[in-house]
Nucleic acid binder design. Structure first.
Lengths: 332, 332
DNA sequence: ATGAAAGCGCTAACAT
DNA sequence: ATGTTAGCGCTTTCAT
C-alpha cells in the first residue's frame, strides 16, 4: 500500500479511502490512485485491514457440514457460497463426520481465523464452544440438526413429521411389518426420524417390533448388512423406511441382492441423485437443502447486520415424492 | 494475548513462545501460561500472527472446483480438506461454474485473503492471474483441466486415452454408429475427450459423422434434448458415449424416455453414484477424484515446503467399469 | 530464560 | 480534500 501511495504521490490513508470508496477524495486523485493500483497489481490485504477496522470483520464465514462430499451437504454449501459471494464473503468449509472431536477442532480452526459468522451442523447435542461464541459475539446458525440448547438459531427439516409421512405412506398401502433403518440415535436427526416412525406406527395401531428396528447404522455397508439380516429372518418386513441418504443406498443394495426390489416397499428420507431412474423409482421424503442453506445464510447475514432479536427456529417442510418403490403393496 | 501475559505474569513474547512451542521457556512458566490461556478461553489470532511472521503463512488454502455440489468436486474437496487439516490448514472452497469471470473473482478473493497456496480447476485455458501468482510466489496446482500454459503443475485424468478406451469398448461390441455427447469444447476436458472419441473411431476405421456429435452441452437438460433428437433421427446411434457426469444423467433420461435403455448401449465418462443400481448398470470410464485430490494436495504441500523443482504433469489413469449398459450389442 | 521495542499492512481518530 | 499518528494482535530482533 505504501508503494501505491508513493507512486500516486499521496498518503496511505488516501489509498485506503479510495479502496473502500470513502467520501472526501477528489476524482483526480482517485484516478491516480487507481492507476497506481493497477500498475502494481496491488491487492489489499483483507486480513490486515480487519485487524484495525472498527467492526473487525474479516468477510469470511465458516461452514461445517456432515461431509463436503455428501450431496445434501454439497447443495447447502453451494447456496451458502453463492449468497456469501454476493456480499463479498468467502467461505471456509469443513466436514464433521459426525465426530464431536472433529467438530470441535473445525470450530476452533474457524475461530482462530476470525470468521464473522458460522453455519454449523453438529454432532454433539450440547456443543461445548457455545459459550465462547457468545462471549466473542460471533453469530452462528445451526442447520440440519438442532442442538439441545435453548436460544440458538436453527434451520432444519421437519424430521419427525417428514419421517411420519413416509411411514404413513407405507401404512396406507397396507403394510404392517415396516422396518426402520436409522443412523446413530445420539444424532438429533436420527432420533427425530425414529420418533416420526414410531408416531406413524402408533397412529395406525401397529405395535413396534425391535426386530424391525436397526439403528446405529452409519454408512452404506452397515445399512446393507442390517437389512440383509432382516430379509432373511423368520418374519421379514414387507416394507422399509430408511432414515438417511447413505442408508437408503445400502437398503437398495440389500433389496436388489435379495431380489426383493419389486416386492418389498421402500421409502427413504432425503433424496438421492438418480433416484428417479432406478427401477422401481425410489420413493423419498425429500428435504430441500437449497432452501435450508438459503434460510440459514440469510439468517446469518441478518445477525451480522442487525440487533440480536429473538432467535429463530426455522422448520423447512419435507415433501414426499412417490416414484414406485414406496407404492408396492404387501404380499397377499 | 496481553491479558494472558498479564494473568500469567509474563511478557507477551513468552506467551507467543509457549503457543508456538518455541524453545527457551521453563516448564514452570509454560504451565502458568497454559493455565492463563485456558482461564481466558484465549485463542490466538492466526491472521494477526501471519502479518508479522517471517514466512507470512496464513495456514489457509484456496480450492476452486467446478461446483461444490458436483460429486466429482466433492470427492476432491474432501481429500484436500483432510490432508490440509493434518497440517493445520483450513480451506476456502469456491465454485467455478465454468465461467472465467467467476474464476477470476474467486482467485482474487483467495489472494486478498492471503492463502498460502491454491488448487484450481480452470475454465479459462490461459488464466490471466498466473503472472500475479508467480510474482507473489503463491504456488498453485491445477486439477482436472490443464491450462494451455507451460510450466504449471497439473494433476488430471487421462481424458483422451480414457475416452478412447470407452469408445473402443463399444466398438469391440460391434457398434459403428456411436454418438458423442460432450460439453463445451473450449473446456480442456471436453475437447480432450472428444479427441479420444475420434481416436477410437479412426483406429476402428469408422468415419466421423457430425450428425452423431453433439457438443456444447452443459447440463442434464441440454444433453437429454440432444440425445432425444438423435434417437428420433433417420439414422439413430446404436451406442452413446457421454463425456461428463451430468451429461450422462441427461443421456440416461433420454434413453429411458425413448424406451431404449436396453437396446442402445451407453458408456459414460466419470462415475455416478448409484450407477451400479440402475438397470442396466451404467458402464463408465471412472476417474479417481480422491487420487487426483490427494496428488494435487501433496504436490501443493511440497511446493510450500521445498525448493521449486521441475513442475509436474501428473496424469491419473482412468478405469473402465463394465456394468451392463456398455455391453449391449448393436441390433441385427 | 525472559522481555522491550519495532513493525507487519491496514484503518480510526484527529489534525490540517 | 488530504496527511499524520497511533494502534489492531501478533512475531521479530535484540537486549538483558
Amino acid at each position: 500500500m505504501k508503494q501505491v501511495a508513493a507512486l500516486a504521490g499521496v498518503g496511505t490513508k488516501t489509498v485506503s479511502r479510495v479502496i473502500n470508496d470513502e467520501p472526501n477524495v477528489s476524482e483526480a486523485t482517485a484516478a491516480r490512485v487507481w492507476d497506481a493500483i493497477r500498475a502494481l497489481d496491488y491487492q489489499p490485504d483483507l486480513q490486515a485491514g480487519s485487524l484495525r477496522r472498527s467492526d473487525g470483520r474479516t468477510r469470511t464465514l465458516g461452514l461445517l457440514v456432515g461431509s463436503v462430499d455428501n450431496p445434501f451437504a454439497g447443495a447447502i454449501h453451494r447456496v451458502v457460497e453463492d449468497l456469501a459471494a454476493e456480499r463479498g464473503m468467502a467461505v471456509f468449509a469443513s466436514s464433521l463426520d459426525d465426530d464431536p472431536a472433529r467438530e470441535g477442532s473445525a470450530v476452533r480452526a474457524f475461530l482462530q481465523r476470525r470468521v464473522d459468522g458460522l453455519i454449523l451442523t453438529t454432532a454433539s447435542r450440547r456443543p461445548d464452544y457455545l459459550a465462547q461464541l457468545r462471549e466473542r459475539g460471533i453469530p452462528a446458525v445451526f442447520v440440519d440438526r438442532e442442538p439441545l440448547v435453548d436460544g440458538l438459531d436453527t434451520v432444519a427439516s421437519d424430521n419427525r413429521a417428514g419421517a411420519a409421512s413416509g411411514v404413513e405412506h407405507l401404512v396406507a398401502r397396507g403394510h404392517r411389518r415396516i422396518a426402520l433403518l436409522a443412523d446413530r440415535l445420539d444424532l438429533a436427526t436420527a432420533s427425530e426420524r425414529q420418533q416420526g416412525y414410531l408416531d406413524a406406527l402408533a397412529a395406525a395401531g401397529i405395535s413396534r417390533s425391535d426386530a424391525l428396528m436397526a439403528t446405529d447404522l452409519h454408512d452404506v455397508d452397515t445399512a446393507r448388512a442390517a437389512l440383509e439380516r432382516m430379509l432373511h429372518s423368520a418374519e421379514p418386513p414387507t416394507a422399509v423406511f430408511s432414515a438417511q441418504n447413505l442408508i437408503t443406498i445400502g437398503a437398495l443394495h440389500a433389496l436388489r441382492d435379495a431380489g426383493c426390489s419389486h416386492t418389498v416397499a421402500l421409502v427413504g428420507f432425503d433424496d438421492l441423485p438418480l433416484a428417479d431412474l432406478l427401477d422401481p423409482g425410489v420413493t423419498v421424503v425429500a428435504q430441500d437443502p437449497q432452501e435450508i442453506g438459503r434460510r440459514a445464510a440469510e439468517r446469518l447475514f441478518a445477525l451480522l447486520e442487525g440487533p440480536d432479536d429473538e432467535p429463530i427456529r426455522d422448520v423447512v417442510p419435507t415433501r414426499l415424492i412417490p416414484r414406485g418403490s414406496g407404492e408396492i403393496a404387501p404380499p397377499g
